[in-house]
Simulated assay, not measured.
Amino acid sequence: MTALTVRAPAQAGVATKTVVRAVRAWQLPPQPAGLPSELPEPVAAAAGEPPAGPAWAEHRTRFAIELVGDGVSGWHAPVAETVAQIIVDDLAAGLIGHDAAAPRRLAYRKKTGRHRNGAHARQAASAVELACWDLASRATGLSVTGLLGGTIRPKVPAYASALGLDPAHPSAPEAAAWITAAGFWGQKWPLPKPLILAGPRAVAKTLGRLRDAAGEGRFMVDALGRCRLDEAMQLLPVLADLQVTFAEELLPPGSFGWHRLRAAGTGVPLAAGEHAVDESEQTRLLTGKAVDVWQVDPGWSGGLARSLHTTELAADLGMATFPHGDRLPAALALAGACCRDKIPAVEWHLTLEPLRQQIYPTPVHVEDGMLPVRTVPALAEAPTLPEKRRCWR
């Protein structure tokens, strides 16, 4: 059996374990279909459509990236087939001989293709960067937070993302009450397009009963970029009455209408950032006075070093950062290396994260609203590979 193994002979005089000798991509099983079996009853009852699972190509065909050093490997998983292909075609050859303990040099390694910008290219660059942190951590015996400058806190608050739930479902208030009782830092509910089209009164009625059920808990909304500018402007007074902690992506991330929302003066904190994958877009959002709350995903934004940079910049500009939960191990490492003023909480997706965690031998769980920061080597456990392992050729 052969791997996508881009390999080079050991360099004379270089014996460090952190030097990349080969790059491999191992195929993982597809994401399980349906809802996680361990969901609390109030949450499961309010679920809308189950997570896409194998219906989405990126969940159906998944890979783990392995960077092979001298006697130790660094891992990142899962990545979609399109992302793995970019790593194979454009990045793998340039990784050979790279010292994973020198993250600032990674951007200058040779690239063999034309993919530089855009979501998939940035996910590929992020996957490689995170695998390098994992390799450096395993090789040196230091935690990733230690490599980032030291562990500031061993546990981080989690806020519950209810994006897999239907806010109009009769059981939704019970789910909102359960989230508060479970100790989460706060809860975030979706604004589906049909609810947006129903108008501000329908939004006020639907979200109002959830806000009441949440009690004193923090309450956020996510429009997933589905609002037109006029729709978002009409919703701002409703969201102000609900006293939302922040409103996420009322407009598409690249929209230039954000300043209109800020100029409305309703006092609703506006959040964005997870879909700002390229450096120029991140800088525009952060410094353009368009948003009040920064959101970053280390698996999309360029990796941990870039995420730490934008988190520090956001703090200098008076903004808190809430890392997106798609790459939870990286988000936790980032949060563990920052104080609570810079990163108050990390996202925990109620219906998706338990499915994502199934690739690891020991899944991470929320306890009393807190998530543990890994203080031992490795960004996360190495993913569980199928018994019949298939490598990408």
Rank of each mutant, 00 (worst) to 15 (best):
K289T: 13
F256V: 13
A125L: 09
L317T: 12
E41D: 15
Y108I: 13
Q85C: 04
P298M: 04
F256H: 12
L195H: 04
A131D: 03
A158D: 02
E216A: 15
L235H: 01
E249W: 07
L385G: 12
H169T: 13
V6L: 13
E274T: 11
G13V: 13
M220Q: 04
G257K: 00
T362C: 09
D326R: 13
W26Y: 14
A10V: 14
Q234R: 08
C227R: 00
A127E: 10
C227F: 00
G217L: 09
A15C: 09
L251N: 00
I179Y: 02
P192G: 08
E353K: 11
S73R: 04
A202E: 07
D316A: 14
T287M: 12
G273H: 03
L261Y: 03
G94H: 02
E367W: 06
G325N: 08
G217Y: 09
R24M: 08
G164D: 04
A52E: 07
E66H: 05
R226W: 00
P50N: 09
H309A: 15
A52R: 05
T5G: 08
H309L: 13
P42Q: 09
E231F: 00
M233P: 00
A102L: 15
A107F: 04
V6C: 03
V277Q: 04
D292Y: 02
R306H: 04
A84E: 10
T5M: 13
R7D: 07
V83Q: 10
A101S: 15
L251Y: 00
L328F: 08
P9V: 13
G302R: 01
V277I: 15
G303N: 03
V366P: 04
D222S: 12
M1V: 12
H120C: 10
A176N: 04
R114P: 07
S137F: 07
A380S: 15
R201G: 08
R356K: 08
M370G: 06
T245K: 11
A272D: 09
L355F: 06
A25V: 11
L135I: 05
A175W: 03
R209I: 06
R340V: 14
V88G: 02
L286K: 03
A276C: 12
L334I: 07
F322D: 03
G288H: 06
L39I: 11
V221M: 01
I96T: 06
P377C: 11
D166E: 15
A333T: 06
A337L: 04
A315E: 09
A247R: 02
L165Q: 02
A276W: 05
T310A: 04
